[in-house]
Design a protein around this nucleic acid. Structure first.
Lengths: 172, 172
DNA sequence: CGAATATACTTAACATGTTAAGTTAATGCG
DNA sequence: CGCATTAACTTAACATGTTAAGTATATTCG
């Protein structure tokens, strides 16, 4: 209701005083940001104690499940952009948590896998991580959690292929 | 190879082979991250055309609604950490999009407000921004959107005061 | 075969996230 | 008043997000 046009023509003066747009703190991006932050705030301390960042942990988890993957595929799985992943892999490799070797068939591709050390590190973090997840589930409610995730998935689907610029329609 | 183990004691079989941990791509943090990214992907191009980042836009919106605020309060409103805000305000001030002046009562505080130029910039971005929001709402469904935001709010509430370290209980 | 393209990454550059330390201005209190 | 403490920011340092270039290897196709 009442979308609040943000009326540009409405002469600057008053525009600034009253509700300029949708209260803003109630916008979808903010809601998602705050919810995610509330969740991550629970995990960060534990990860930090083990010398891992959120993204590094994502990568290790993805690797543990897939065994061996190309960088591009890993980027998709861990939901990281190429450049970020590239840097992180360099660091994880330096710390011997992962291993990398170029594919024989295609010299451009490098196959990544978690190392023994990496597996051990994961094993030491997992319990705490699982406990936190369980506590979150308990507090919010298992059923609602499933429901929430379904809605998030639907939202994602709704917007799939909207701003990705499927070429052949943009002015650039 | 066979990266499986991650599981010292329990060779309990199924545990590790089937679901390494909760498929991971279906974890709550990932769901939230992907949903938010799907949404922000829609806005970024427009903001970018106007030379604004997501955070800068958040700050301008917050300022437009509040008129004048202290930095700390603004950080809470725009949901930004102090250091990030500090840097961004420096840049926005250099671009004359905001104004800053130290409070008379307390020299430590600096009061921030949006400038005329900032208001005009907002007016030029708002239409496009509103249109995008409307399209998202249309695609996902207005009712479901409200429902989703309520759940996100509840999630946030559920976790309020959990890992924040309310002192007097932590070991540090 | 060989130049133009496309792929798979990596670098670079700039902005923010995140935590810790530093600065300057209030406050509390003996 | 004078010093310790607190408060409000700002800087610093390191990691990631984001977009644009750069590199090296594959592929296409004339």
């Amino acid at each position: 209701m009442a979308k609040r046009p943000a009326d540009p023509a409405d002469d600057g003066a008053a525009a600034v005083r009253q509700v300029p747009m949708r209260d803003f703190s109630r916008s979808l991006p903010m809601s998602l940001l705050r919810a995610r932050e509330a969740v991550m705030r629970q995990f960060r301390p534990s990860l930090r104690e083990h010398g891992l960042t959120e993204q590094q942990w994502r990568i290790l988890r993805a690797l543990a499940a897939i065994d061996t993957v190309e960088v591009t595929e890993l980027a998709r799985t861990a939901f990281l952009l190429g450049p970020s992943l590239s840097r992180i892999l360099r660091d994880l490799e330096a710390r011997s948590l992962i291993e990398r070797k170029t594919a024989k068939a295609d010299q451009r591709r490098s196959m990544v896998s978690i190392s023994e050390k990496g597996v051990k590190l994961m094993a030491s973090v997992a319990p705490s991580s699982e406990a936190i997840y369980a506590e979150i589930t308990r507090r919010f409610g298992a059923r609602k959690l499933v429901e929430l995730q379904e809605m998030l998935g639907e939202l994602e689907q709704s917007l799939a292929g909207l701003g990705a610029g499927e070429e052949a329609s943009a002015e650039e």
